Simulated scan of single mutants.
Amino acid sequence: MASTSKSIKSKKQFTHISSWVICAFYFSVIYFLLRWTSIPKEIALYDAGISALCITGCCYLIYSTLHYYLPKNNQYWKLITLGIVLTLMSVVISIFILFGFFDASEILYVYKGLPFRIIINFLLLACIMIITIFWNIQEEYQDNKKRKEASERMLRDAELYNMRQQLQPHFLFNSLNSIIALIGSKPSEARKMTFQLSDFLRGTMRKDDKQFIPLSDELNHLKLYLEIEKVRFGHRLQTNFDIDESCLTSYVPSMIVQPLLENAIKYGLYNITGDVAINLRIYSIQNLLHIQIENPFEIDQFENKKGTGFGISSIQRRLFLLYGQSNLLQAKAKDSIFTATLRIPQYDKDYSN
C-alpha cells in the first residue's frame, strides 16, 4: 500500500510539473513565432497565453484518460481519434476566446496559420500520448513484477512452514515410543524424558515465527534434543562438540541442524552395538558458516535402507528456498564414517523475521 500511494503521488507530481513545462514551452514558441511575423505584442501575448492554457488542458485530459484506460494493440486508432479531437478542441477554443478580446480584423492572421497550429498541436499531443503510454506500461510491468514476487514469497514461506511442521512429528513419534517403553521399566526416566520433551517442543513453538536465529540459540535447542536422546540410548550415545566461539553470533535457519543430528543418531546407533560418538564441528571460512556432523555407520545400512530420506531432502529444499543455492548441503561416506556438512552464507541479510 505504501509503495502504491508513493507511485501515485510521484505520478501526480510528474503530471503537474510536465504540464506547466509544456505550457511555458508552448507559450514561448507561439509568442516567438507571432512576434517574428510582426504580430503586435499585446495580441501575441493573448494568443500565446490562451493557446498554451488550452493545450495544457488537453494534456491533462490525456493524462487522466490514459491513467484509467490503456488501449490494446489493435485499438490504437482510438488514440489517433482522441488526438485529432483534442487538437481541434484546443485550436477552436483558443480562437473562440481570442475573438472575445479582439476584433476579427485584428486577428486575420489566425486563419492563415490555422494548418500550422493544427499540425503543431497534434504533434505535441501525440508526443504526450506516447510518453504517457510508455509510463503506464512501465508502471504496470513494475506492479505485476511486485505482485509476482509477493506471490512467490508467500508460496515459499508457506512451503518452508509446511516443511518445518513436518519435521517435528518425525522426532516426536520416536520420543513418545521411547517414553512408552520406559514407563513400565524405568518410570522416573520416562517422567524425566516427558519433561524434557515438553521443554523441547515449547522451544520449537517459540521459533515457529522466526526464519533465522543466532547459532547460540540453535545450539541450546540441540542440547535439549540431545538430553532426550541420551535418556533413550543411555551411555551408548556420546557427543563431541568442537565449536569456534566466534561463530556463536552467526545466524542460521531455525531448526536446520536438528534433523541432521537426528539422522546421525539414527544411522549411528540403531544398527550398531556398543558406544557411538557423534561429532559436531562448527567453523567459518570466508563468510560461510560450516556445520559438520560425523557418525559411524554399517555399510549394509545403505543397501537395506528403509524410509524416504525426508529429513535430508527437506533440508536441501529449504536451503535452496532461503539462499537460492543447491550445493549448501554436502554428504559423503568414507571408511564407515558418514559426514554431512552444512554451509550457511553469512552475507548481509535481514534477520528480523
Score class of each variant (00 low, 15 high):
S254Q: 03
Y31A: 09
Q166I: 12
K41D: 09
M154G: 14
L98M: 08
C127R: 11
I22C: 03
S336V: 08
D300H: 10
K334Q: 14
Q75A: 07
Q165R: 13
E262P: 04
I50H: 00
A340C: 09
K6E: 07
G234Q: 02
Y141K: 13
Q211V: 11
L289W: 01
N304K: 12
I84C: 03
R202F: 14
A340L: 15
N327P: 08
I93D: 01
I183C: 14
S38N: 09
Q238V: 11
S64I: 14
N287Q: 05
S198H: 13
Q330K: 15
E149K: 14
E303D: 07
L201S: 10
N162H: 14
A277G: 10
K210L: 05
K146P: 15
F96Q: 14
M129A: 06
Y161M: 15
T341L: 08
C247G: 01
F27Q: 01
Q286H: 07
A181K: 15
I128F: 09
R191G: 06
Y76S: 14
T37A: 11
Q325G: 14
F14Q: 00
S94R: 04
F116C: 11
T56R: 02
I93Q: 03
L108W: 10
L289T: 05
D217W: 00
Y141M: 08
E152M: 13
D157Y: 01
I50S: 00
Y347L: 12
Q165N: 11
E245Y: 06
S178R: 03
I282Q: 06
W36V: 06
T81R: 10
Y111D: 12
L98I: 10
D103T: 15
C59Q: 13
E218L: 11
I107A: 04
Y225S: 09
S216F: 08
I128A: 15
K11M: 11
R156D: 15
E294N: 06
F338W: 14
K230S: 07
D157N: 15
L88R: 10
Q75I: 12
I179Y: 01
Y69E: 04
E140P: 15
Y60F: 05
A340G: 10
T132S: 13
W135G: 15
I97R: 01
Y267Q: 04
S326M: 12
